[in-house]
Design a protein around this nucleic acid. Structure first.
Lengths: 350, 350
DNA sequence: TTTAGCACTCGGGTTTGGCGAGTGCTAACT
DNA sequence: AGTTAGCACTCGCCAAACCCGAGTGCTAAA
């Protein structure tokens, strides 16, 4: 590979121009750019070269060029220089971020929404989780006769709960006893490895009818499994859909289906979770995303960390023709702001 | 008003045909219908009459007629005869409804999804609530040092909770004491009427630093207010969007924005909640829905009841050109199935 | 090696004309 | 009086023809 300096400059110009106009860009447009030292003819030659190398394509003869996935890749890896955000915008985000936020998921939801506004594309995030979580606490809380709240506290401090009904009256003490026994038997076992049998082994020798015991076991098991699940927040999809690449209703449908196909995005982002923190941004362009329907999109996400165990993912989905230089610093800043707020809340609520 | 029998028959035929073809229907199409006793010329005369009465329109000269909102209204009120669903489909729904359902909201979500599949349009539902709910229980549960789970039980049995952090260590007993005091002071007060002041009055004379007391009060207050909030589930929007009325991308956007404008649908359905149980179905056609962007849609919803206090809403959003005769019995059946499952679970969890 | 000039290509927009579905009106029929 | 056949008319849709202009690749000169 290794492009000449002039070719780099031309490629960058083409990408920048195409990003802002969404129209194939011709040699003249580049040549007329204020700081261009070279003529359109020369640019044409270089463009032909860039096309031969697979970085550009012509949608048809007599049209300008547009970048290929590879062209964007080159741009993203070597050519762009993300700009720092202006202080005013930082202030704005910091201010908006804390409005009407009552718990962490609110904060994340809000951050996701802000990210969409700040970038103008669709945003997604994954609720935090830890890689190998286990059950730290399990409680049965008697709410009324025959109704019990099952509370699961995971190792990293996540709390989930679930309301169940049981068929018999049972005292708080007994409930506590059972919960304690289950809790103890699960100490240190990663949730993925817990099975119904694991849980069952806990209750040897507790003096209660089998029926009720089995029900509680089952409910505890379900609650634990549910506790580990991830939510995905998505916002501003309409901002993505108004992009000119989706002028066709069928294109809109393809993207819509991909995004709202339950669990598809979640699964994808979860797999991406593995990315090391050395390369904080994951940028997938067009075909590189393997999800059916998102071929015309790019996905830029990053991992956010809370405390020293929890992490999640946040980022945006835009057209391939995306303002990468603007998007990156905004995701960065929001990632940091979320962490900051989380830490602040942890040590001292307002 | 009062249409002649023949006019009724013609109007019904036109609506039925238009619903299935999405094309303006002409006099000949009606005349050729197998059971038509009359000629196209007569039908033309009647159609002109129906148009004069505002029940039909011609999109342009030399096109057939399509129903106006008023035409659909007449159809819905007087002409259609909803069919009972086949037993096979009932079985199917009953079977699907209970899969992987772990608590009521799962059931509702599942029901909503099934409704969309069964009708082929988008479906919406509102989580259950009661008209004048009050706080029945309030609990603070100490999870770890400095982390407390606030649990609110509403009068109808709804349970909501929220994890908070507090800045100081405080014993379980003290937490219970505070929660008890707040709980008592709120007995019988409708949630809408609770203010921060109401809550504050509870803690006269508890011996703890003001700072921590105030924080707990505030958190309790927020939790209570949050407990009352409604969720909306929506599913199968893509089924709506592929309808031919939304072939234009801009139309897709209008509908999309209306549906995903946070709180818009919720608010609308909540207001509709008031509908008496005498008229179980609310059918809003086109302009009758006052929401910007849904002019081409119809909204058919019904109230579901759980126990004797809780109720919510479930229904579908389709194009005006909707198979009302098929939609109604499906909503009915799902409403009943949800109630049935809820009751069954209440008395005896499998 | 760069650039000016030029012939060529081809997509997009506009115009034109024919086709056909559907209508309203009139006159005949029951 | 109500119904029906016949017919002229309207108008949206579609395809063909057409032009325009943007952009190219090539060639030859600087």
């Amino acid at each position: 590979m290794s492009l000449g300096e002039r070719q780099q400059w031309i490629l960058k110009s083409i990408v920048d121009t195409y990003v802002s106009t969404a129209e194939p860009v011709g040699s003249r447009a580049i040549a007329q750019q204020s700081d261009s030292p070279i003529s359109s003819a020369t640019i044409r030659n270089e463009m032909a070269e860039l096309e031969a190398r697979g970085l550009l394509v012509q949608p048809h003869t007599s049209a300008g060029r547009i970048p290929t996935d590879l062209g964007y890749r080159e741009y993203v890896d070597n050519l762009m220089t993300p700009a720092e955000l202006p202080e005013a915008e930082k202030q704005e985000i910091r201010h908006e971020l804390s409005e009407r936020v009552y718990e962490f998921n609110d904060l994340l939801k809000r951050a996701t929404s802000l990210l969409s506004v700040a970038t103008g594309y669709a945003s997604v995030s994954l609720t935090p989780s830890e890689q190998f979580s286990y059950v730290k606490q399990l409680k049965f809380l008697s709410i009324e006769a025959e109704r019990v709240l099952v509370i699961v506290v995971l190792s990293a401090g996540l709390v989930r709960d679930r309301l169940i009904r049981i068929s018999e009256l049972i005292s708080s003490e007994q409930l506590q006893l059972i919960a304690g026994a289950i809790e103890e038997s699960l100490q240190g076992i990663p949730i993925q490895e817990i099975t119904l049998v694991t849980v069952e082994s806990a209750l040897e020798g507790i003096a209660l009818p089998d029926a009720i015991l089995n029900q509680l076991l089952y409910e505890a098991y379900i609650s634990i499994k549910q506790a580990d699940h991830l939510d995905v927040y998505m916002d501003g999809v309409q901002r993505l859909l108004v992009q000119p690449e989706f002028r066709e209703a069928t294109e809109v449908h393809r993207v819509y289906n991909a995004l709202h196909n339950d669990g598809l995005i979640t699964g994808y982002l979860t797999k991406a979770q593995g990315q090391g923190p050395d390369r904080p941004f994951m940028i997938r362009i067009g075909q590189e995303i393997k999800l059916n329907g998102l071929e015309a999109c790019s996905l830029v996400t990053t991992t956010y960390e809370l405390g020293d165990r929890l992490c999640g993912r946040i980022g945006i989905i835009g057209p391939k023709r995306m303002e990468y230089e603007k998007v990156i610093p905004r995701i960065s800043f929001i990632r940091e702001s979320v962490k900051e707020y989380y830490d602040k809340k942890s040590e001292n609520f307002e």
